[in-house]
Each structure stands twice: as structure tokens, then as C-alpha cells.
Design a protein around this nucleic acid. Structure first.
Lengths: 336, 336
DNA sequence: GTGAAAGCGCTAACAG
DNA sequence: CTGTTAGCGCTTTCAC
């Protein structure tokens, strides 16, 4: 089928013009007479002509494509960031090429290589388990913007992040202001975002004079991880009334754990997540969270990429967005 | 930066061999002497050589890419199907190119065109609002497999679907066997999947002698839509004890509506969704659902594509997978 | 306005 | 085993 796909030559022959003229006409140049243009477009239409993107990007030496590496597609949070990215990318007449690495740095390496083979003109990396070396490597070939990880820096790497330490603090502060004092934390594993949020938790606990109640169990940013970690916390200290969980996904898991432990949420136990995942606003209990402006972060990242594509000398930037307390159904004043 | 990216010629020059040999060596042919191979790989490495995918796919006349059109990325159900697809695609040494149309047929058209411009060798379409004309058009250029929509057929179009009518029936039957009789339905809007599930609901209600209790309100497969529709149903008939909702996402919305109406789930009201969305297994109430084998459907679809790529004469297939009742936390025996 | 010619970087025969 | 020679389909000077 595609073995006989019409090429620009076929169109030229049929329209009785040269292929250069077809090329111009197809791309809407005004240096083509109306008569020729019409003949060409008609011929193209009749033939079902469709420009070959590979040939074009080869001749053009630009792919008009932005590569996006996402941790995975299951956490809807990434989809929200991606929406923002795509909005901007499309508005620039570019396309996005999406890959996922699932936090496996082998796979991330391979996927990034594929994007670079494809000559993407810019790269947006959204993966909390990204290998810094990979990012730096990639940054030697095209502008790179990392979202949600401010700890990876280097030549050619811009970042767009929330202040996770601050967000971690605020989560605790809000619970404290609701009267909670025995506040534990489910962390998010070995990555900087999680580390920052945990640090915020610890700092705020200390400042509130609650150091003795600091209690942390490691999760991994997944539902299952959150569930297990939360269960352990409730076992270690049944007196807990507040739970700050490293992200919304694991916070949903924590809600399950709470119910399994016969703790009713939020009357017995308040739970706070992070991210502002839209799906977490649903279900029988809507999750209280420290929300990040996800779409905005995506837009910002894409804009940074284009700024650097358009003016290669543009400075690297490190943008910070603000997270905000979004009280919903999983928090309430401390019992008693 | 990429203005001076090394090419195969640079590698050849540096290694002191011809570019054809470099081409062979890079692709791991065994028709290259160890000595040459080593020199070539070293040169490539020193130069930071990276093959140009566009050039390769142009010369090769194959992109080694499968295009995937997804309705959108926010419904995690699609991510699950995609996982299955990618597993197979990767195992064939191909890549997937992912686009989303958000049910907007303008955009779907544009995205499909882009995939075809890129010479994808096969297409997997997963969108309940897909325009049949687009699919048929695309099928003229490469093998097309449609997932979850058996109503779009045509030359070159294979399908992989569940039996949604049957699933709809079973949802009702299960509720009936739990003692429910006043069972209402939130439908999923103007698409075949939704229509089939609704038909199953109606058939099963009739067979159970419950025709008088048939009550349907239109949703649209979104959380918000499910919430509104469910709210209306509960208002129209407060005696409802069972709710069959067209998909998991809207069923989550229905759970919220139930609570807003002061109906407790599942003791006052049982709710069933469709799909088997993994996230719906979380939260404070895990959703009972008619689950489709999502990953398997993805794998199946990808395998069908490759079968047709490998042997262009292969027959079009229409596979049907079976949905299964997955009782979880939102269903219980009818009250009283 | 339009066409001829020269690549873009790579693969694929075909000779040696 | 290795080099030479043609393209793949398109864009882009540069004359006419």
C-alpha cells in the first residue's frame, strides 16, 4: 500500500510543473501563481498526496518536534502537565513526541536516545526518578527543561518546579492549625521531590514544637506504597491524627489503609496529599492536597523550550511555581 | 549545537573506512571485521555520533513506528491499554508514536494526518468518539486496529473489543442477584460503547421482569457527567437501590452524587461501573466494576497490527475479549 | 514565477 | 570483508 504512495514528483508530473513549485505551493508560499497553485493542489488532492515527514525533516534539518519524557501515564498528574505542554507546543506549530521510562533508567536512556535520534529540537523531562546524567547528556544536544526536579542542574538545563520544602511545611502547618499534633509522614522514596517534602514536614514539626511526634515511613509515590506505609504508621503509633503523604496517589492508598485500620477519615484521621491530581477530587472522599499548578507548569516548561529554540543564546532559567493548600474532604479538626 | 552534529561520513572519515561500512557496523552486522568494527564504534563514540532517524527511515522506507491515537490521557483506562500496546511494540523493535484527539474530530483528523505523514506502519485507534470516516481513510494507507469500538468496520480495519451488551447485562444480573430491582442507568453519551452497555442494561432489566423500573439518564463518560446524571436519577426516583454507570470514571462521579444526596454506598445504594480502571480500586471506596482486560486488549491490538505488517495479505480480524464481574466496595445486597 | 541541480544523512545493491 | 554508486522524498539556492 504505502509502497506506491505518491510523492512530490507524482504531483509535479500530474500538475505539469516542477517539483520545487509543488514544494512551495504545498507549504502555501505566495510566490506561486494562482493558476499553478490550483493545479498543484488539485493534483495533490486527486493523488491523495501526503508529504513525507521524514524527508521533510531531513531536508529541512529541523524536526519541528519537542520530545517529552514522562515517568509514566498512570499517574494522571503527568497527563495534566502534558496538557499544558501540548497547548504551547501546538500553538508554535510543533508536535510533541511522548515517551515513558517508568523510572527505569535503562529504559529512560533508550527512550531519550530515540528522541534525540529523531532530532527533537527541545526536550521536556517530567520524571521524579530521572537519572541526572541522562539529562546532562541530552542537554548537550538540545535545550532541556526539567519539570518538578530542581536538583538536576547543569549546562543547558532549565527547571520548572514548585517549592516542595515550603509545600511540605505548609501541609503540616495547616494540620497544626486544625489542632493536630501527632502528625506522621509517608515519604515518597529516593528522589528529591520526596526528600524536599519530607524536609518541609520535619522543619514544620520542629518549629511547631512537635519534634517528638515526628514519625516517617517510606512509600514510593504509588498507591500501593502509600497504603502499606500508612498501615505501618498507624500500627506503630495508633495515636496519630494527621497524615502528610508525599503525593496524591499514595495518599489515596493511605485512605484505604486508614479504613482497613478502622480509622474514619477525616473524623479520626486527617490525610493530606501533594500534587492536585484532578482525579483525587472524586470518589467518595475528595482528597485534601497541596496543589501544584500542573497545567501551568507544563505551559511554562514548553515556553522555556521555545524561548531557547528561538534564541539559542537565551539564558537558562529556574522557575518556581507556588503550591497551594486545597482543603477538601480528608481533613478536619483534630478529634477530641 | 545540532548544527554540527556528526554524521555517518564523519565517523567513516575518522575510522578510515567507507560510510557503508559504518552503516553496517552501527547496525551490528556481522559482515564487518572485528578490527573495522572496533575502529568504527570508537570513532562514533568519540564523535558522539547518533544516527539520524529521519534519514534512516527515508532511506529504509520504513519508520518502524506504530501510531496510537488515544482519546485522552486523563482516563487512566487508556494508559492501561497503552501499556499492553507498548509491550508488544517494543518487543518487535518498533516505537510507538502517541497522539490524543480529545474526541474533537478536527483534532483527531490533524493528529492522524501527522502520524501518516510520518509513515507509521500501523495504526491503533483507541477513542470512543472516533469519527469512522477518519478510520476508513487511514486504513487505506496502513493497517488499522480499532480498540473498544466494534461498530467501525471497513476495508483494512480490525477490531478488538469487549462484548459490551453482554457486560451491560451482567452488571444488571449481578445486582439482581444481590436482591436489587430498582436499578437505574447512567449512560455514556453518543457512542457505540455506551449504547451497547445501555442496551445490555435494558435487555437484562426486561428479562428480569423489571421493565417498569428502567430509568436512564445520559452521562458522557466523564466524572462530572456521571455525577450530574446520577444526581438527577436519585431525584427522579429516590427509591433506586442500584446504579449501573456506563464507565468507571463516571461511576466515581456517581459515588460523589450519592453521598451528596445522603445515600450511603453500598448500604443504601449499590454502584457498578465498567472498564476496570486501576485507580478505581483505590480511594475510600473501591469501585465494583465490569472489568475489561485492558492490557490484554492493548497487546492483542498490537499483535494484530504486526501480523498484518508482516504478512500484508493477513485477514482482517474482529476479536472479542470478555469482561468480568469484579465485586468490590460499592455493591452490597439490596437494603431491607 | 518557475525549473534545474545539489544536497540532507542514511541504506542498499553491486562490484571487487 | 569493503568501497562505490544510487537513490529515499523533500527543500533550497540560483539562474532563467
Amino acid at each position: 500500500m504505502s509502497s506506491t504512495r505518491p510523492t512530490i514528483n507524482d504531483v509535479a508530473a500530474r500538475a505539469g510543473v516542477s517539483k520545487s513549485l509543488v514544494s512551495l505551493a504545498i507549504r502555501g508560499s505566495d510566490r506561486v501563481s494562482d493558476e499553478s497553485r490550483e493545479a498543484i493542489l488539485r493534483a495533490a488532492d486527486e493523488l491523495g498526496y501526503r508529504p513525507n515527514a521524514a524527508a521533510r525533516s531531513l531536508a529541512d534539518r529541523r524536526s519541528r518536534t519537542i520530545g517529552v519524557l514522562l515517568h509514566d501515564l498512570h499517574n494522571p498528574v503527568f497527563a495534566q502537565v502534558l496538557d499544558g505542554v501540548q497547548e504551547i507546543v501546538r500553538s508554535h506549530g510543533y508536535r510533541t513526541m511522548l515517551v515513558t521510562g517508568h523510572g527505569d533508567s535503562q529504559r529512560e536512556r533508550a527512550e531519550l536516545a530515540a528522541l534525540l535520534d529523531f532530532q527533537v529540537e527541545g526536550l521536556i523531562l517530567i520524571s521524579h526518578r530521572l537519572d541526572p546524567a541522562l539529562a546532562r547528556q541530552a542537554a548537550r544536544e538540545c535545550p532541556v527543561v526539567i519539570v518538578m526536579r530542581h536538583d538536576i542542574t547543569g549546562r543547558g538545563i532549565s527547571t520548572v518546579c514548585a517549592d516542595d520544602v515550603r509545600a511540605g511545611r505548609e501541609a503540616v502547618e495547616q494540620l497544626v492549625s486544625l489542632g493536630h499534633s501527632r502528625i506522621a509522614h509517608v515519604s515518597g522514596g529516593e528522589n528529591r521531590v520526596a526528600a524536599d517534602r519530607e524536609q518541609g514536614y520535619r522543619e514544620a514539626m520542629a518549629e511547631a514544637g512537635l519534634s517528638e511526634h515526628v514519625l516517617v515511613e517510606a512509600g514510593d509515590f504509588t498507591e500501593a506504597g502509600g497504603r502499606v506505609a500508612a498501615a505501618r504508621l498507624l500500627e506503630r503509633d495508633p495515636g496519630i491524627t494527621g497524615l502528610v503523604v508525599a503525593n496524591d496517589l499514595s495518599a489515596l492508598g493511605a485512605v484505604v489503609a486508614a479504613q482497613e485500620a478502622d480509622r474514619s477519615v477525616p473524623s479520626d484521621l486527617s490525610i493530606v496529599g501533594f500534587d492536585g491530581m484532578s482525579l483525587a477530587a472524586l470518589g467518595s472522599l475528595t482528597l485534601t492536597t497541596m496543589a501544584q499548578p500542573l497545567e501551568e507548569m507544563g505551559r511554562e516548561a514548553a515556553e522555556r523550550v521555545f524561548r531557547r529554540i528561538d534564541s539559542p543564546g537565551a539564558r537558562i532559567t529556574h522557575d518556581q511555581v507556588v503550591s497551594s493548600w486545597l482543603p477538601r474532604g480528608t481533613t478536619a479538626p483534630a478529634p477530641g
